[in-house]
Amino acid sequence: MNGSPIASGAPASPPSPEPPVVATEHLVVRSRERVILNDVSLAFPDRDVTAIIGPSGCGKTTFIRTLNRMTEIGSGLMVRGRVLYRGQDIYARGVNPVIVRQRIGMVFQRPVVFPMSIFENVAFGLRINRVDEATVERTVESCLRRAGLWTEIGDDLDRSGLTLSGGQQQRLCIARALAVEPRVLLMDEPTASLDPVAAQKVESLLFELRQNYAVIIVTHNLQQAARVATRTAFLYEGRMIEFDETKRLFESPREKLTENYVTGRFG
């Protein structure tokens, strides 16, 4: 895979065997003042980890927030183009954003733990869907297991979630997102506020999650992208510059901008 840059103009997505679970088509996001995302088309495969990288302010957060309609919460941003979830436009008329967010979950940069017990944090999404108590208990346990927290805190679920360490809190947030049974998990720099050990735990969790979910992760950390993501997209000033298999993107980028970025010449 160490060939020379392919001299083709079209930044086509690499072919993937399955149809994408999430895709954007000519996505444009603008604020009152300016265009934040300009014509971004990307397709994300199921059961895989895709990374989004780019310098600060290039629109990474804005991008993944459009993928589950979080942009429309008091942000004043306008979204054009299409975002498809399994072929269906989630911005189409009649689509309920609440349902969209149940299918496409999100984990934030800073862990956001509700001021409730660990159990109730994980059960939150189940309670709003009026799931029966037995199922709630079963799901809470399995989600904590999948988030690698069960062995650490499984016997102390009534403790306030706020008493956990930062890394545990972030994994609690992941468990909480999993409890809603999403197909897609959006993660905006999920390890950026964690110490290296905690970050490592979250990162290794991604290898488990990729078996069952489409994970889309924004990261500032290029090594992290290289470790966890099969594919990586490079955004620059609101435009999608290059989207390729991670190894290829890092080792033989087609675009000069990408090369400058991944070699640390700016950003």
Partner: peptide, 16 residues
């Protein structure tokens, strides 16, 4: 706002 967003991101309605 973080807490509110986290709730909405779990598929809760504004009322919930």
């Amino acid at each position: 706002h973080d807490l509110v967003e986290a709730g909405l991101a779990l598929g809760a309605t504004q009322w919930e």
